[in-house]
């Protein structure tokens, strides 16, 4: 017995009729498949365009560049979806699974665009931005002076070089994690994991040195 075929049949049996129809036509041949691919592309382009528009207010990109990102994202998402059809396991509607490709392609492409702005660089460290970054107003800033000093010292003394580099880029420079991942040749997950460990270590150090209470972290 072919286990791959068995899995596929189980999946097809459990999906809703609309999703099953997508799978049938996209894995078919001829004009029926071509028509399905065309419809899929139209959907991907609509989702990618909406997603670009949703993020646009936070970006330094002009209209034509945004259109470009949407079209590229839709094209790449189409390739990915058709290449990975077997990866759809029927845990959601087919279209929801497909939308995810469009959203993640837009996300990745906009992450790379960050470095197109010549004003941004990883050089230098803006430690004076630290209080601002967390929204300390001037009064609170002077009141919490010791805490902020202790945080800076902990970053310098307790973090590994990699943790420190990523902390400085994300917290002090406001570099988006995806843009940083591109620059450092890694991925969002690895950046997050490094920051997660750094955050945990910094809290432990600040608690040990009496600047934070152990129970102050919000849990829910």
């Amino acid at each position: 017995m072919d286990p791959g075929l068995g899995d596929n049949q189980a999946t097809l049996a459990s999906v809703d009729p609309e999703s099953a129809e997508w799978l049938r036509t996209l894995s078919g041949t001829g004009v029926e498949r071509e028509a399905a691919v065309e419809r899929l592309h139209a959907i991907l382009l609509r989702v990618a365009s909406n997603e670009v528009r949703r993020r646009a207010p936070r970006l330094r990109l002009a209209g034509p560049e945004l259109d470009d990102v949407a079209h590229q994202a839709a094209a790449d998402a189409l390739l990915a979806v058709t290449a990975k059809l077997g990866g759809f396991r029927g845990e959601s509607r087919f279209t929801t699974w497909v939308y995810k490709f469009a959203v993640l392609e837009v996300s990745a492409k906009l992450g790379r665009h960050f470095w197109c702005d010549p004003r941004v660089s990883l050089e230098g460290e803006d430690w004076e931005r630290l209080p601002d970054r967390f929204g300390f107003d001037p009064a609170e800033r002077s009141e919490r002076h010791d805490l902020l000093d202790a945080l800076r010292r902990a970053v310098d003394e307790e973090l590994t070089e990699r943790q420190r580099q990523i902390f400085v880029a994300i917290v002090l420079k406001g570099v988006p994690a995806d843009a940083l991942a591109v620059e450092l040749g890694t991925n969002r997950n690895a950046i997050y994991k490094t920051m997660f460990d750094a955050r945990r270590k910094l809290r432990a150090v600040l608690v040990a040195r009496g600047y934070l209470d152990i129970g102050t972290s919000r849990r829910s």
Binding site: K100, D137, N187, N189, Y192, F196, L206, L212, S217
Partner: peptide
């Protein structure tokens, strides 16, 4: 406000699955 924000930032939840798993199951 700043202290709360810093406190929140330094808080880590041991249940946190990370980006890869979250993206895998996002749909």
């Amino acid at each position: 406000n700043g202290w709360d924000e810093l406190d929140r930032f330094l808080g880590t939840d041991p249940r946190d699955v990370g980006c890869a798993k979250a993206m895998d199951l996002l749909h």
